[in-house]
Simulated assay, not measured.
Amino acid sequence: MFAVVRTGGKQYRVAAGDKIAVEKLAGEAGETITLGDVLLAGDGGEVKDAKGVVVSAEIIAQAKSEKVIVFKKRRRHNYRRKNGHRQQLTLLRITAVGAEQKKAAPKKEAAETPAADAPAKKAPAKKAAAASAAE
């Protein structure tokens, strides 16, 4: 099964076992994260609905990409500027692509809710008191 996920303003086609480099995500090496913004899912040549599909990944490392040199020059004006930039990346290993498991909601008992036991306040009494004070 594969999925197309969006992270860091880019889209990636991933499957279980793939390794990808994405823009920096919060987390330490070894942590498991979920990529929730799934745009498309499929199995083989079949395209499925991406609703409810979750992609889980393990952070391999936090790294930097290769250096990009930015050089500006205006000829005959003695103007030269040189800058370098290294983008921070997160290396991910996709562990699973599949349907989200729904958790059972905890049952609420009537005895646990304090709002049901407390008497309701009367709003019209406040209005009447405010009207008599205004006179």
Rank of each mutant, 00 (worst) to 15 (best):
A16W: 06
D18L: 12
K19V: 13
I20F: 01
A21H: 04
V22F: 00
V22W: 03
V22T: 04
E23V: 07
K24F: 08
A26F: 07
E28T: 13
E28W: 00
E28N: 14
A29Y: 02
E31D: 14
T32S: 13
I33S: 01
I33A: 02
T34P: 00
L35G: 01
G36S: 15
D37K: 15
D37V: 08
V38Q: 06
V38E: 03
V38R: 04
V38H: 02
V38P: 02
A41W: 05
G42V: 04
G42A: 06
G42M: 07
D43K: 13
D43W: 01
G44C: 02
G45C: 01
G45P: 08
G45N: 15
E46G: 04
E46Y: 03
E46P: 02
E46I: 13
V47Y: 07
K48C: 05
K48N: 14
K51D: 14
G52L: 03
V54D: 05
V55A: 01
V55Y: 02
S56V: 11
E58H: 04
E58I: 00
I59G: 03
A61H: 09
A63G: 03
K64E: 14
K64V: 09
K64C: 03
S65F: 02
E66V: 02
E66K: 15
K67I: 03
I69M: 12
I69T: 10
I69Y: 09
I69A: 06
V70R: 12
V70D: 06
V70E: 08
V70I: 14
R74Q: 13
R76L: 06
R76V: 00
N78D: 14
N78K: 15
Y79N: 12
R80W: 00
R81E: 14
R81G: 00
R81N: 10
K82R: 13
G84P: 04
H85R: 12
R86Y: 03
L89T: 01
L89Y: 03
L89K: 08
L92E: 00
R93V: 06
R93S: 11
I94S: 01
I94E: 01
T95C: 05
T95N: 10
T95K: 14
A96K: 15
A96G: 06
V97A: 06
V97K: 09
G98T: 07
G98R: 07
G98P: 05
A99G: 05
E100M: 12
E100Q: 13
Q101W: 00
K102R: 13
K102I: 06
K102N: 08
K103H: 12
K103A: 15
A105W: 01
A105T: 11
P106C: 10
P106L: 10
K107G: 04
K108S: 10
K108T: 11
K108G: 12
E109Q: 10
E109F: 08
E109C: 03
